[in-house]
Design a protein around this nucleic acid. Structure first.
Lengths: 155, 155
DNA sequence: CGGATTGAGGACCATTTTAGTCCTGTATAA
DNA sequence: TTATACAGGACTAAAATGGTCCTCAATCCG
């Protein structure tokens, strides 16, 4: 179904919740209540986001989580990558890309380009966009053009 | 990892193989040999592509598979959808979209827009592009603009 | 100082999805 | 009429996913 995992979905919702109140730190329990999801699961998600450097955490009483940087500087692909790892259409569009079938495949280069375009698209969507309650106007015009140029530069 | 399933990957490779020789029908065994994948798996993939209307099949001796329409009229999203079902970033960006958390979510509308942009991007990549052995120049400029307009039209 | 609060880390399990195989049936060409 | 080749679906093994829980560590506050 080419979709985000459920945890990624949770992550986005929780990040958006934090982004809407960026001043105070938010405890996991508080966030779980706010978004109506089980505490342990939300907690797990938050830890992953901290490890990815998207959130800062503060232990102890009055502690909690807050954004590591402004919502406008956190992109959808940051969140996705934090939970699921790198975005790549195919196994071989990943960094190492050691597909022993490359010889008979003949499609991998092109999939890599498509992956890049998808990543660029997701990179152009920020947490600030996601957190907006009024639907976003997708600002995807220019970034995609630059992808096209990059691919035209060839490799 | 937000990636295509392995079967989808196979499907693309096999489709590309057929697209490069669109005249004769191709038996499953022949294709499996050409792309160096196990016959039963390739066969399963081919059946899914037929059911999705992307391939035509001919039984009996000298039978096999051929494209249902020109490679330039088959898009990457057609292939992906044939194997994995609809492309949607989140559960609730699907057709029915009955997410009981919608009230506390506040992100679903925006994810739906992102899904649409991804779909449009994938729709702009054709099998003819994928089958090219020289890397494609991604023709994604105009389609994405039209997505932006669609989202600006609101809903 | 000491207890309450809150996150960190990881083990663990149940469930679902995915990949892959195989068997039986049917259409078609020679 | 026989060999070829696809159709449909049952079935299994392996992996990913979602979710819970427990113990430890840091921090605040009285």
């Amino acid at each position: 179904m080419l979709k985000l995992s459920r945890l990624t979905d949770y992550a986005a919702v929780v990040m958006a919740q934090i982004a809407r109140h960026p001043e105070q730190p938010h405890a996991a329990a508080e966030l779980a209540e706010a978004v109506q999801l089980p505490h342990p699961t939300v907690s797990k998600t938050l830890k992953m986001l901290v490890r990815a450097g998207l959130l800062l955490s503060q232990r102890g009483a009055q502690g909690g989580y807050r954004l590591a940087r402004p919502a406008s500087e956190i992109s959808a692909i940051d969140i996705i990558t934090a939970i699921e790892g790198p975005v790549a259409m195919t196994e071989c569009s990943q960094d190492d890309g050691d597909c022993e079938l490359a010889a008979t495949c003949g499609v991998s280069d092109n999939w890599q380009r498509v992956s890049l375009a998808v990543r660029t698209l997701l990179d152009s969507v920020t947490l600030a966009h996601l957190a907006e309650t009024t639907p976003i106007k997708l600002p995807v015009r220019l970034p995609i053009q630059s992808v096209t140029l990059a691919s035209e530069a060839g490799r």
